[in-house]
Computed example of a mutant assay.
Amino acid sequence: MATAAGDRLSDLFWRQPRVLLAVLLVPPLLWLGVVYIGSLAALLLQSFFSIDEFSGLIDYELTLKTYRELFRPANFDIILRTTLMAAAVTVASAVIAFPIAYYAARYAKGRMKAFFYLAVMLPLWSSYLVKVYAWKLILAKEGILTWAVDGIGASAILNAVLSIPVIGGNSLSVSYIGTFLVFLYVWLPFMILPVQAALERVPQNLIEASDDLGARRGQTMRYVILPMALPGFIAGSIFTFSLTLGDYIIPQIVGSSRNFIGQAVYAHQGTAGNIPLAAAFAVVPIVIMGFYLWMAKRQGAFDAL
C-alpha cells in the first residue's frame, strides 16, 4: 500500500515538476514570510506607536511622535556615531582586505592557498564573546599591546593618540579607537573572502591584454582589476557595514560609555521599557542599508554580480 502510494507520488512529481518545486519551496518561503518578514512588519508597526508620558504605557494610536524623538540631539548622536563607525570599519576593511585577497587570488598556490583559507577562517571558528573579551584584555592599560609599545619606546606616540579628543581615552580598551580595532578584527574575514572570490574571476587574458597594450601596472590595476573586483567589495561592504550597524556587544565591552544603535535598542526595550523607541532605532539600520543598496544599484555596482 505504502509502496503504491509512493510510486504514485513519484509519478506525479515526474509528470508535474512544478508540483515538486512547490513542495520544496513552500515550507522555507512560509518560514521566511512568517518568521522573518512578519517580525520585521511587527517591528515596523511598533515604531509607529508611542509611550504615554503620564502612565508609561504604550499608546497604540498610530503616530510619528516616536520617529521625531530620533532627531533629538542625544538620539541623533547615537545614529551618527554608529554610522560613522560602520563606515570607517568598512573602508578600513576594504583597504586591508585587498592586498591579502589579491595575493591569495593571483599568486598563492597549493598549500599556500590552503593556509590562506585556514588563516582567514580560523578566527571565525572561535566564540564571538571569547574574541571580544580577549581583545578587551589586549587593549587594556596593563595589556600586552601597551607592554609591547612600551618595549619599543613608543609609549609617547600611544599617549598622543589616546589624547585625541572624542576618539581617545584613558586606554585603548575604553576608547573609540579600541572599538574600531575590535570591529575591524571581527568583521575583516567577511570582506576578504568576497574580494578574493571576485579577484579569482578576473580573466588572466584581460591582464595580459592590458600589458600588451602598454598599460603600466598601476593602470591595469585601476582600469581592469579594480572595476572587476567591485562586486566583491560591494558584497563585503554589505556584510561589514550592516554587521557593525547592528552590533551591540562589542561597544558594550570595548569602548566608551556612549551608546551605539544596538545598545540603544537593547536599553529601550529592556530597562527603559520604551518598545516603540527601540523599534524606531531598529528601523534606522534597515533604512540606512536600503539607501546604501539603492545608491550602489544606481551606480551600477550590481551589474557584474
Results as ranks from 00 to 15, higher is better:
residue 190 F to W: 13
residue 87 A to P: 07
residue 89 V to M: 09
residue 71 F to S: 09
residue 242 S to R: 09
residue 193 L to S: 01
residue 206 L to W: 08
residue 221 M to L: 15
residue 288 I to R: 04
residue 46 Q to V: 00
residue 2 A to T: 14
residue 142 E to C: 01
residue 67 Y to R: 04
residue 114 A to W: 03
residue 168 G to F: 01
residue 190 F to D: 04
residue 28 P to D: 13
residue 71 F to D: 04
residue 242 S to A: 14
residue 233 F to R: 07
residue 155 S to R: 15
residue 18 R to S: 03
residue 179 T to Y: 01
residue 159 N to W: 11
residue 250 I to S: 10
residue 158 L to E: 08
residue 210 S to K: 06
residue 27 P to N: 02
residue 169 G to Q: 08
residue 134 A to K: 12
residue 153 G to W: 10
residue 207 I to Y: 00
residue 255 G to Q: 11
residue 64 L to G: 09
residue 164 I to N: 06
residue 73 P to Y: 09
residue 148 A to C: 04
residue 285 P to R: 08
residue 82 T to A: 05
residue 217 R to Q: 13
residue 258 R to Y: 02
residue 230 L to N: 09
residue 119 A to F: 11
residue 68 R to Y: 03
residue 229 A to I: 02
residue 57 L to H: 05
residue 137 L to F: 14
residue 57 L to A: 04
residue 83 T to Q: 12
residue 273 G to W: 03
residue 126 S to P: 00
residue 251 P to T: 01
residue 269 Q to F: 13
residue 155 S to V: 11
residue 227 P to W: 08
residue 72 R to S: 15
residue 48 F to L: 14
residue 132 V to N: 12
residue 12 L to A: 12
residue 174 V to I: 13
residue 292 Y to L: 15
residue 136 K to E: 08
residue 209 A to C: 07
residue 274 N to F: 06
residue 219 Q to V: 11
residue 254 V to S: 10
residue 23 V to K: 04
residue 79 I to E: 02
residue 122 L to P: 00
residue 25 L to V: 14
residue 59 D to T: 08
residue 213 L to C: 07
residue 106 R to K: 13
residue 303 D to V: 12
residue 203 P to E: 09
residue 239 F to S: 08
residue 271 T to M: 14
residue 293 L to Q: 11
residue 270 G to P: 11
residue 277 L to T: 00
residue 126 S to H: 07
residue 273 G to C: 06
residue 176 Y to N: 13
residue 170 N to W: 02
residue 248 Y to V: 11
residue 66 T to I: 03
residue 33 G to W: 07
residue 60 Y to N: 03
residue 85 M to H: 01
residue 266 Y to M: 14
residue 79 I to P: 06
residue 15 R to Y: 08
residue 18 R to M: 06
residue 230 L to D: 00
residue 96 I to L: 15
residue 56 G to H: 12
residue 135 W to V: 04
residue 134 A to Y: 14
residue 245 L to W: 06
residue 67 Y to G: 07
residue 235 A to N: 08
residue 180 F to H: 05
residue 180 F to V: 05
residue 51 I to S: 00
residue 182 V to T: 10
residue 140 A to M: 02
residue 11 D to L: 15
residue 242 S to I: 07
residue 195 V to S: 01
residue 70 L to Q: 01
residue 175 S to N: 04
residue 217 R to H: 10
residue 143 G to Y: 09
residue 3 T to I: 14
residue 36 Y to V: 12
residue 275 I to Y: 05
residue 48 F to N: 00
residue 290 G to V: 04
residue 268 H to G: 02
residue 126 S to Q: 11
residue 272 A to L: 15
residue 102 Y to R: 10
residue 23 V to E: 02
residue 13 F to D: 06
residue 205 N to G: 01
residue 27 P to M: 01
residue 65 K to A: 14
residue 92 A to Y: 07
residue 87 A to T: 10
residue 244 T to N: 09
residue 40 L to N: 08
residue 253 I to Q: 06
residue 9 L to A: 12
residue 124 L to S: 08
residue 277 L to G: 07
residue 298 R to A: 12
residue 166 V to W: 05
residue 161 V to A: 12
residue 89 V to T: 15
residue 226 L to V: 09
residue 91 V to S: 12
residue 150 D to R: 15
residue 243 L to D: 03
residue 241 F to L: 14
residue 251 P to M: 04
residue 143 G to R: 09
residue 288 I to V: 14
residue 140 A to F: 08
residue 201 R to P: 06
residue 147 W to H: 10
